[in-house]
Design a protein around this nucleic acid. Structure first.
Length: 158
DNA sequence: GCCAACGTTGGC
DNA sequence: GCCAACGTTGGC
């Protein structure tokens, strides 16, 4: 049995990893690793599946915004960067038996014609329920189909 | 660079 | 298991 396509919003600081960086990946796919929040971990491990749509959001900049669309190509699997003592997000509690942290792979799809800024999102009542507006710190968060479609429309993608 | 929000840690 | 202290995120 198949499952309906779901939608997510992934946040990234563009100075760290931008949508253009994803576009520039050799095969246009990227391991979405380094997430160290349990709520986001649970989504990565259990809920986010290949084919799901991802809004790519740039945070911690003058004008935070959704800038593009990506797609999940591999569902949750252990985030090995937690096991690597040399890695930035190493976690000494993690092991191959108990990886604790998970990641997914995403691929570049297309940019929005016009980025949809956080300010703009705040002005649309259809988007007032967005997790982004209520719990802004969650770096991987669910988006409803209605929110997804609305943002794509605002972004000039049909 | 400030600071509010909020998740995590650790002492008790 | 509570909760104060602490660290981090991210908008401004």
């Amino acid at each position: 049995m198949t499952r309906d396509r779901r939608f997510w919003l992934f946040k990234s600081e563009p100075s760290c990893f931008s949508f253009d960086d994803l576009k520039a990946c050799p095969d246009s796919t990227e391991h979405w690793d380094g997430v160290r929040n349990f709520q986001a971990r649970n989504l990565l491990r259990d809920e986010i599946k290949p084919g799901d749509g991802v809004l790519f959001y740039h945070s911690s900049i003058a004008e935070p915004a959704v800038v593009g669309i990506a797609e999940v190509v591999r569902g949750g699997y252990p985030d090995w960067t937690a096991l690597d003592p040399g890695a930035e997000h190493f976690d000494h509690r993690a092991s191959s038996d108990n990886p604790i942290w998970f990641m997914v792979d995403v691929r570049y799809v297309r940019p929005l014609k016009t980025p949809v800024t956080l300010n703009e999102m705040k002005m649309h009542s259809e988007l007032s329920g967005m997790v982004l507006l209520k719990r802004s710190r969650l770096s991987v968060q669910p988006v409803t189909r209605q929110e997804w479609e609305h943002i794509l429309r605002l972004g000039g993608v049909h």
